[in-house]
């Protein structure tokens, strides 16, 4: 399967019009005496980079762009007062702090610099890092304008993805012939029951979208097309994350053709101990962390190599040249699991 459709609009900002207007409003309102600093908060792949790119495009030379790619030390912070630009745009601000004793000093210095500066700071944060730092350090009080990119609804997602193509360029196919005989298909999911080690096939009811669509009254059938059903499925798997949804779309598209059958969901069966859950939550909130930073966070009582091995083996974490991150399709299951186990507050 491959994606051969040609994007029509590369720099579109569909879905974040309101957020962009709020940011522009905060910039325009900001006087040099009391700049209204902005915090953009979003989950990994949830559109933060798109919004940052749009701000850079709109404000051009007024912006000094500072993307952070790793945990920074005090010496890595530039002297903001010497910069000519009046807008300082910093991406991945979660790298300003780490979850170790003494790991908040750089963030503390940054926040103190920011509140005494005459420049406007636009900072972008990972949602879970922001939530943690807000609880621990109350960083939200430093930002009069807080923009949260929420999960995307299906109609908006459909608009975002289809805006890359010409009208009629993508063919949506109604298939699933084997499943058409019933509204619900009985399948057998392999599950591991408590107190047992072996997996057993458990009868499971699977909704038959295609047939449900065909059986709907004429009025509703006009409203719900196969196109909508396909995007509904993509968005359900992506859990409203546009980045994950786009990846899923790309991997499901076959020669500009897509059908429900092509959209496959990766199953995850997550079972972690306290150390593994903790490290996974740290990776999720930082998005990408080097092994040495993880080792510092883990401390001496935790065998970080063993923990990372277990996480990689379960497909929950990927290693890219020593940097660990969560694979896009594992994001939804990982977030659900960590919320359930109270690792995300």
């Amino acid at each position: 399967m491959g994606h051969e459709g040609k994007p029509v609009c590369e720099n579109c900002i569909i879905g974040y019009e309101r957020e962009l207007q709020e940011i522009c409003g905060a910039i325009e309102r900001s006087g040099s005496d009391a700049p209204s600093h902005v915090a953009i908060i979003a989950e990994q792949m949830a559109g933060r980079k798109t919004l940052v790119a749009e701000i850079r495009r709109i404000y051009g030379d007024r912006v000094h762009y500072l993307p952070l790619d790793f945990v920074i030390r005090e010496s890595d912070l530039p002297d903001f007062s010497t910069l000519a630009s009046d807008i300082i745009l910093i991406d991945n601000c979660q790298f300003l702090a780490t979850r170790v004793i003494g790991g908040f000093d750089v963030l503390d210095i940054f926040l103190r610099t920011q509140i005494t500066s005459k420049k406007i700071f636009i900072t972008a944060w990972n949602t879970y890092s922001w939530q943690y730092l807000s609880s621990v350090m109350h960083i939200d009080v430093y930002f009069p304008t807080i923009i949260t990119l929420t999960r995307m609804d299906t109609p908006v997602l459909k608009q975002v993805i289809l805006s890359r193509y010409k009208p009629g360029e993508i063919r949506f196919i109604e298939d699933g012939a084997a499943e058409r005989s019933m509204f619900f298909s009985l399948i057998h999911k392999k599950v591991r029951l408590p107190l047992t080690t072996a997996e057993i096939p458990l009868p499971w009811i699977k909704l038959n979208f295609t047939l449900m669509l065909r059986k709907l009254p004429r009025k509703k059938r006009l409203q719900i097309s196969i196109e909508d059903v396909i995007f509904e499925k993509i968005n359900r798997i992506a859990q409203g994350n546009p980045g994950v949804a786009t990846l899923l779309w790309n991997s499901s598209l076959d020669k500009n053709t897509i059908s429900l059958r092509f959209i496959t969901e990766t199953p995850y069966s997550i079972s972690l101990d306290t150390n593994e859950s903790f490290i996974l939550s740290v990776i999720l909130s930082m998005e990408s962390l080097h092994e040495k930073d993880l080792a510092a966070i883990a401390g001496s009582e935790m065998d970080i190599k063993q923990v990372l091995y277990r996480l990689v083996q379960q497909g929950l974490v990927q290693n890219n040249a020593g940097y660990y991150s969560i694979p896009p399709f594992a994001l939804g299951p990982v977030i659900d699991y960590l919320k359930k186990t109270r690792r995300l507050w």
Binding site: R99, V100, I101, G102, G103, F104, Y132, S135, V136, T274, N275, F278, I297, R342, W345
Partner: peptide
């Protein structure tokens, strides 16, 4: 400061308005 940071960086802690 050290005790505060040892507490908030613990793998067992939960912190929010409720906690």
């Amino acid at each position: 400061k050290i005790l505060k940071e040892a507490l908030v960086t613990s793998k067992y802690v939960i912190i929010s308005k409720k906690y």
